[in-house]
């Protein structure tokens, strides 16, 4: 899709297969039903970023970005911190509740190691991390260790939790 000037717009509606790939992944991995996003639209931006925005975008002026980044595509689907912070409460699978000190480490950007018995309900791959009923963000579970996926700009030393 190109606009009248011949430039490729930065935010396109993704092809159906990309759309399905993202929505199917979120449903399978986290139990997030596609209806969760009813009334919103998906947009494909540069660097494989997938935005969740209003159902209808605008033709002009040229759009810089739409809504929020919910995932990044690079072969697989990588869910964003924002997706988890906004929809984490509706996630039913691959959710790991953290203890207070673990949540503080996570917010700082540190990786987290948990005993196997606390990981028995989840499978390797991206996981949704939370503290009490508050979704915090994304981690990558592999070999019993959770790699911190929190972007640097979001890291914070928490004093009150």
């Amino acid at each position: 899709m190109r606009d009248r000037t011949g430039r490729r717009p930065r935010n396109d509606a993704p092809p159906q297969e990309t759309r399905s790939m993202v929505l199917d992944y979120l449903e399978e991995r986290f139990g997030l039903a596609p209806e969760t996003f009813r009334g919103f639209g998906l947009y494909l931006a540069s660097k494989g970023r997938v935005y969740l925005g209003p159902e209808r975008a605008i033709g002009e002026p040229r759009v810089v970005s739409v809504g929020i980044t919910i995932a990044r595509l690079s072969g697989t689907v990588k869910p964003s911190t924002n997706l988890i912070q906004l929809f984490g409460r509706q996630m039913t699978r691959n959710v790991i509740p953290l203890e207070k000190e673990e949540a503080v480490s996570y917010a700082k950007g540190e990786d987290i190691r948990l005993p196997a018995e606390r990981l028995s309900h989840v499978t390797e791959g991206y996981v949704s991390l939370g503290y009490a009923d508050v979704p915090l963000g994304c981690g990558m579970l592999k070999d019993g260790s959770i790699r911190n996926m929190l972007p640097k700009a979001k890291r914070l030393g928490l004093k009150f939790i």
Binding site: P54, R62, G67, I68, N82, A153
Partner: peptide
């Protein structure tokens, strides 16, 4: 608009579209 994007993301403002005109 980069700071704007960061804050829209952080707060979960899904219905916003950023333009630079």
């Amino acid at each position: 608009t980069r700071a704007l994007k960061f804050n829209l993301e952080k707060t979960g403002a899904i219905n916003a579209i950023i333009t630079n005109q």
